[in-house]
Design a protein around this nucleic acid. Structure first.
Lengths: 334, 334
DNA sequence: CTGTTAGCGCATTCAC
DNA sequence: GTGAATGCGCTAACAG
């Protein structure tokens, strides 16, 4: 494999000159420059980024730690991150800790070993070890999707107003018994979405009925069971809000199993959109998280942090899009 | 940042010894070893993979070139690749050429610059430049998803029998006018799926009606138009096979717009499954590509190729899963 | 405008 | 069982 030394020899110049024409880092006489360029072509030279990184202590690489890569949900996030990173000349190192805090710690160390210039982290449930490591080594870091510490840079979705809006939408259609299928207790997103739910109720003078706030554990199966419970209530809800995409699936299954037709018999609105949601039956009314924008913003924050390690920590909450379809019942004859 | 030299000094040994205890690459007296380990802890030492790579000419990194990362379709592929790579101690460098051959060439060069040990490539429509570069530099490479050259290692889905099976399923239900919405002309997958379609017809003694083989261009909009055309035929099909997920969407839209109810008025079976396909109406009968397994196998082939550059090129075709749901009409009262 | 040289952090050969 | 020394390929002073 051709090295700079080969090119230098071929061009009859010093290795330093080659480096400088390559990087445009100091003036070079046009003819010399041309010779070097020719030599590069002749030698079929490809710069060695590894050597470059060792010399400069920069890798132009950013690490992305994402669990459940396969969640279609994250496709857009990945896309946003990749394109914004590429635009800035950075390449992505992708690792998947599979929601395991210990693995998370390990992969973060690995990323640091590889000397990534920065880390984008969608934190697991117990990200303590990983975060401490990152902080201790002062690795520029941005939290994505799950916001857990406003002393760090982080980007995610605005949850409170979004859910309040969903509840309001139902209330305005006349619903008074609105249930929430909430996520895993303790999770930041869960807390905020429950808060939004209660805010929405309050705004419309609706009472808080504890029986209508059920735990779907952020998962399909638990949500299915929770909705089943809701349907068995003496005074079942006339409308349901589900707090993430997996739970929406479970809720729909429970409803279908019970022979409850949405939106005729019951209204349902959801947090998170689905790809090809138009072909669902019924077409779901949802708030859609802007994952693409979240990814892009995360990269921007990270670049800023890398440029200025002393910058003030920033928390950005992106407002999700309200997608008005059929499951809320707005298309129904009054 | 602590280096090996720091650790060596702290432990009162040579840098060589530190390296050897770290890599287990030669015998070290237990006590010396213990001292070194202590020093590593004390210095809070993290190995520098970059330096390691420069010295060994290996990066334990593999490059993944994937367009349309956001296609939910690819989530499982990514998952398979990531986990299998991680298992072998490799980290993924992810790049997205956005189906652009020129960009593809550029990102491939970039990956080589970063000295990835191997490349997984889902080739664009014109992968010539990128492939030549890879071959010329003898970078171990495995083609994924789109099989285009059996002189290289490649992994994808078995298309012919899969589509023939789909057609057979319809034929056995009594359909005699079965249409195919085919993909972008010339693409390897398109050719094979068309072949499977014709094979399926032949096996059941069905005539080949050119009017029933329409071009959906692998895209939603074109498929929608194509199905519209099909419906306008004097003798329209009673069943449709769509050759990929995007075209299935288009077909469903066209059918809905025309007031054709599936499977009551017309049967539809598709290539490619969807996440949450259970919530579609109707629930689609499909063949699902095993992307997870494809990803894993691709990594395995790549590892083999890296270990033995002279190995015989292997083409692997994974048999997709038949998922029997409702859109084929099998659940209909006879 | 150009060349010389000293590292970057580690693996590894050769000597002891 | 251990250490000294060289080189991986490049950047960045420093000197001219």
């Amino acid at each position: 494999m051709a090295t700079m030394a080969d090119v230098a020899r071929l061009a009859g110049v010093s290795i330093a000159t080659v480096s400088h024409v390559l990087n445009g880092t100091r003036a070079v006489r046009p003819e010399t420059r041309a010779q070097v360029l020719d030599a590069i072509r002749a030698a079929d030279y490809t710069p060695n980024t590894v050597a470059q990184s060792l010399a400069t202590a920069r890798t132009t690489t950013i690490g992305l730690t994402l669990s459940a890569i396969s969640n279609p949900y994250f496709g857009d996030l990945l896309l946003g991150v990749e394109s914004e990173a590429a635009r800035a000349g950075y390449t992505l190192l992708l690792v998947d800790p599979h929601e395991d805090p210990e693995l998370e710690d390990r992969v973060v160390r690995q990323l640091h070993s590889r000397r990534v210039d920065g880390v984008l982290l969608a934190p697991s449930a117990e990200p303590g070890a990983a975060l401490r490591y990152l902080a201790h080594r002062s690795v520029p870091t941005v939290l994505v999707d799950r916001l857990i510490d406003d002393r760090m840079d982080q980007v995610g979705t605005e949850n409170v107003e979004a859910v309040a809006g969903l509840v309001g939408h139902l209330a305005e259609r006349g619903h008074r018994r609105i249930a929430l299928v909430a996520g895993h207790p303790g999770r930041a997103t869960t807390i905020e979405r429950v808060e939004g739910y209660e805010l929405g109720l309050a705004r419309h003078g609706l009472p808080r009925d504890p029986a209508l706030l059920v735990d779907g554990h952020s998962e399909t199966e638990a949500a299915r069971a929770a909705v089943h419970t809701l349907l068995g209530l003496d005074a079942p809800p006339t409308a349901i809000v589900t707090a993430n995409n997996s739970m929406t699936i479970g809720a729909m299954q429970a409803l279908r199993d019970a022979g409850v037709e949405v939106p005729r018999d019951l209204a349902l609105v959801a947090f998170d959109d689905f790809p090809w949601a138009d072909l669902f039956a019924p077409r779901l009314t949802v708030v859609a998280q802007p994952f693409d924008r979240i990814g892009r913003e995360a990269v921007r924050l990270l670049l800023r942090r890398m440029a200025d390690p002393a910058a003030e920590p920033t928390t950005t909450r992106m407002v999700p899009d309200f997608v008005h379809r059929d499951s809320c019942g707005c298309g129904l004859p009054a």
